[in-house]
Each structure stands twice: as structure tokens, then as C-alpha cells.
Design a protein around this nucleic acid. Structure first.
Length: 192
DNA sequence: CGACCGATCGTCT
DNA sequence: GACGATCGGTCGA
């Protein structure tokens, strides 16, 4: 929980996102994130304080998972970061796979191990088994959590770019709120 | 490689 | 009734 969603977003790089479903642990190191600055961010689901059934969880206390479905198919995983009623969110966009990679490949229907296994928010959710039913899950639960394993990402290695897929988001569409680990190959393409 | 396009359905107007 | 905080396949160079 922190007042500055972008500071938290950068801190999440190098942390490990872990799931434990049906006794199987899968995990990866976070390599790409995007910050969504609540009610004043025209690319955020909570823009203009529009509170709906879908985005209600964004108003929960920091440390809660916000999962929603995009394009009818993909489950996108976000971390809520602020106090109750302040809808700041961080979209986890890519991870570098670490534990039980074979399970993740099976979930994704992949035969080759490459960046596509866990690059992109829909892809990593599928690989980790994250589902819409985990919306509202607490990230200090025993199902989904974030671990610090001592990996330090120096601020010089953090690159910011515009966010992906928000071209039509209006005023804030081109703000540099996407953060990636420089040189890491486990990330999606950078938009123009 | 890059560009394009169809899939697919919950959510909001 | 329209439209996504996307993905993966195909096509052409």
C-alpha cells in the first residue's frame, strides 16, 4: 500500500508472482508492468470515479487482486495499491517463468519455451492459472502472492514507455506509465 | 520480421 | 448494440 502507484509499479519489477492452485506452485519474476492512476487517469477503468460492478474491486484496500476479462477471452491481473476507496491499479504485463514451467506450458498449450509463454497480461494469467474467479483475492493469501527474493533492479535498468492498447484512451493515452526491465527478453513489444 | 485481422463475450450505455 | 488495459494465426516481403 503506497500513495504513489508509479513508485509501487517500479518496485514490483524483479519481484516474484506466485500462484498455488490444487497444490501446484507456478511462478515468475515480474518484468513488465503498467500503472493506472485512478480517477484522474483517462486510461483507467476508474476514470471520472465511474464506479461499476466490474471495477468495484479497484476501490478495495491495497494488496487486493483485480482480475477482469478483456476481449471476452483474456483474464487480466492487476494489483490494487492504495487505501480503500482510492482505485489505483498496476497491470502485470509480463513475467519471466521460474517454477513449474512445464505446467505453465501445458496450461498455455505451448510446445516451445519462449517469451510468448508469459509475455502479455492474458498470457501470463493463463500460464499461472489466474482466473476471473480470483477477482478480489488477497495477495497475502495462500493462493496468489508476491515475493521479494532479493533480486534488485537498479533504477537505471528501468525503462518507461507509453502503455499498450490504450490508443483510444484520450488525454492520458500517451503518458509513460509502462515500466520494463531494460534488456530483459521476457516482455511484449513496445508500442510506437 | 511487420502488418493485419478474426475470435469471442462480459460490461456498460 | 458496440467495444475492449489481447492473442495467435496468416500473409507478404
Amino acid at each position: 500500500m503506497d500513495a504513489d502507484v508509479f513508485k509501487v509499479a517500479k518496485k514490483l519489477l524483479g519481484k516474484f508472482l506466485v500462484t498455488n492452485f490444487n497444490g501446484i506452485i507456478t511462478s515468475g519474476m515480474i518484468t513488465e508492468v503498467e500503472g493506472y492512476n485512478g480517477e484522474i487517469d483517462s486510461a483507467s477503468h476508474a476514470f471520472k470515479a465511474r464506479r461499476t460492478q466490474r471495477n468495484e474491486i479497484m476501490y478495495a484496500t491495497g494488496g487486493t487482486a483485480y482480475v477482469y476479462i478483456c476481449y471476452g477471452i483474456h483474464h487480466l491481473f492487476n494489483v490494487i495499491t492504495n487505501e480503500k476507496d482510492i482505485p489505483h491499479a498496476i497491470l502485470i504485463r509480463s513475467i519471466e517463468p521460474v517454477e513449474n514451467i512445464d505446467v505453465m506450458m501445458k496450461r498455455r498449450g505451448k510446445k516451445k519455451l519462449d517469451y510468448a509463454l508469459t509475455a502479455g497480461p492474458g498470457a501470463l494469467s493463463k500460464a499461472l492459472g489466474i482466473h476471473i474467479k480470483h477477482n478480489g483475492e488477497l495477495l497475502y493469501s495462500n493462493l496468489i502472492w508476491i515475493e521479494d527474493r532479493g533480486v534488485k533492479i537498479h533504477s537505471r535498468k528501468i525503462v518507461s514507455t507509453i502503455r499498450v492498447g490504450v490508443e483510444g484512451a484520450g488525454r492520458d493515452a500517451r503518458l509513460p506509465y509502462r515500466y520494463i526491465i531494460e534488456g530483459n527478453k521476457w516482455i511484449t513489444r513496445t508500442p510506437k
